[in-house]
Computed example of a mutant assay.
Amino acid sequence: MSEPVIAPRNAFYGVAAVWVAALVIAVTLGIVLPEDLRIGWLLIAFGAMVLVSFAVQLAYGHAQGFIVRVAGSVLGALAVMGLVSAGFGLAALATGL
């Protein structure tokens, strides 16, 4: 007797989890750190998000679509962190006038 095929979990939740983590980390770093240290730590945090996206997608357990899921996680984290960084940069320009 064969085993029934179990429906795979939705891969979008893992991608969205990385985006949310990137948002939380970027906002936290933007609030906590002074302006001169912000960019360096955001780069380090983005590197950590790349590793987190690999870990999340490996934990998903399916090889099919792995590269697409990791790319979506990483590019989304880059976009989120870039937008947050741009927001803090514009805020710094507005307060510096």
Rank of each mutant, 00 (worst) to 15 (best):
S2Y: 09
P4L: 15
V5H: 14
A7R: 15
R9W: 13
A11D: 14
A11N: 07
A11S: 13
F12V: 14
Y13I: 15
G14E: 09
V15H: 06
W19A: 08
V20H: 00
V20G: 06
A22C: 08
A22D: 02
L23N: 01
L23Q: 00
V24T: 00
A26H: 06
A26Q: 10
A26G: 07
T28N: 00
T28H: 03
G30V: 00
I31V: 10
I31E: 00
I31S: 03
V32E: 01
L33D: 07
P34M: 00
P34K: 07
E35A: 12
E35G: 08
D36P: 00
D36F: 08
D36R: 13
R38A: 01
R38I: 02
R38T: 01
I39D: 09
I39M: 10
G40R: 13
L42A: 05
L42R: 06
I44R: 12
A45D: 05
A45Y: 04
F46N: 05
A48E: 05
L51Y: 07
V52C: 11
F54D: 12
A55K: 09
A55M: 11
V56A: 12
Q57N: 15
L58P: 02
Y60V: 14
G61N: 12
G61T: 14
H62N: 14
H62I: 10
H62R: 15
A63I: 02
A63V: 02
Q64A: 13
I67C: 14
V68D: 11
V68L: 09
L75M: 13
L78W: 04
A79F: 09
M81N: 02
M81F: 00
G82C: 04
L83K: 05
V84L: 05
S85C: 00
S85A: 08
G87R: 00
F88E: 01
F88V: 02
F88Q: 00
L90C: 07
L90K: 06
A91L: 09
A91C: 01
A94V: 13
T95A: 14
T95N: 12
G96E: 10
G96T: 12
G96P: 02
G96N: 07
L97A: 12
L97T: 08
L97H: 09
